[in-house]
Design a protein around this nucleic acid. Sequence first.
DNA 1: AACTGGATTAAGAAAAAAGGTTGAACCAGA
DNA 2: TCTGGTTCAACCTTTTTTCTTAATCCAGTT
Lengths: 196, 196
Amino acid sequence: MNEYDKLKAHVQKRLSITEDELIEFCNAFKIVKVKKRQFIVQPEFVAKNRFYVVQGTFRAYVIGDEGQEHTIQFAISDWWISDYNSYIFQQPASMFIVALEDSVILQISHEAESALKQQRHVFETFFRILAEGTAAYMARRVITNLTKTAEQRYEIFLERYPDIVTKVPQYALASFLGMTTEYLSKLRNRRVSSKT
Amino acid sequence: MNEYDKLKAHVQKRLSITEDELIEFCNAFKIVKVKKRQFIVQPEFVAKNRFYVVQGTFRAYVIGDEGQEHTIQFAISDWWISDYNSYIFQQPASMFIVALEDSVILQISHEAESALKQQRHVFETFFRILAEGTAAYMARRVITNLTKTAEQRYEIFLERYPDIVTKVPQYALASFLGMTTEYLSKLRNRRVSSKT
DNA sequence: AACTGGATTAAGAAAAAAGGTTGAACCAGA
DNA sequence: TCTGGTTCAACCTTTTTTCTTAATCCAGTT
């Protein structure tokens, strides 16, 4: 199974599409290998691409006024990531997106994506589905962040994204869940000891 | 002494200018904080700004055909840096410029600089002086690189820029001087032991 | 043919940074 | 006055980065 097969499977799972269309779709993507700690999006620079993670782990974060890092999103294998405010409107980014380990991604440029969307109805549909998913996900995040306690947020995340928990460093997860790394460390210990 | 004072002093040292003009000049610059490893210029993107280093250390380098990094320039406190081929002609850059430590810079955009130059004779003069300095410096570099041995290049650098030597990692200095890091390591030891 | 200035390769040591834990003190809101 | 949480500081462990050393090689001199 090569890089494109994964993307194909991903697309097919979401809508009905012919083999030819799939190939056309994949041709718009470029395989890129990135090393751990390498940035694929940086503030000030326009995010020219949208990324599909074939292998590896990424973290998107912004830097607050006092220099604190706030993790906005993670992405592991089979996820999409970019600074959408930058990508969609082609404005300078405000995020960093960095590889947490050596990774392989498929990237599509903004122009290529626009072309696809115009070319065929299915492509338009696919990106719509993608956008709706992202919107819904972000909405859920906002809600959980406002309504749940730190511990609950951790629990929920743990249940929903067990794969991610094992792959990202704890400070990144803490800043994603909106708590300090010390507190997350304590939460974890509390759970472990209460289990045994 | 704030960020702008440093720039003011820098300008005043080079030409005679009124306080009002200085303020006008400084207003064209924006304070930016960058973290270690953050890029301020990247290949493919047009370098929109010229940077004055208030605090910190930067390294400009290109990647050769076999993936080797060649350091083109360093910049420490009170130095200017950019990819000038990109900045001056507003073409896509070929360099990376990266912070070697957490730093503070003042950046001016190409448009703002053009405006300044048109506005007043002194500003035009200042940027001319800057450009002449850079040109002369680059010419010296080319000459030393062609005419001196690796050891001499190191000696010359050591004498001329002792502050830089202590601040940049040795592999970066080696690639600046056009030798391997192993060889630079030997050179250093040779000197140390011959001194004692 | 032998010497010199330097590159290449590989292995290890040393230093620095990243990541994680712990405990004490504190603070804001129910 | 609890509870859920932060802040700060110290400390430990692990990983990464940087530097050093040594052996071997190589291309131009002499």
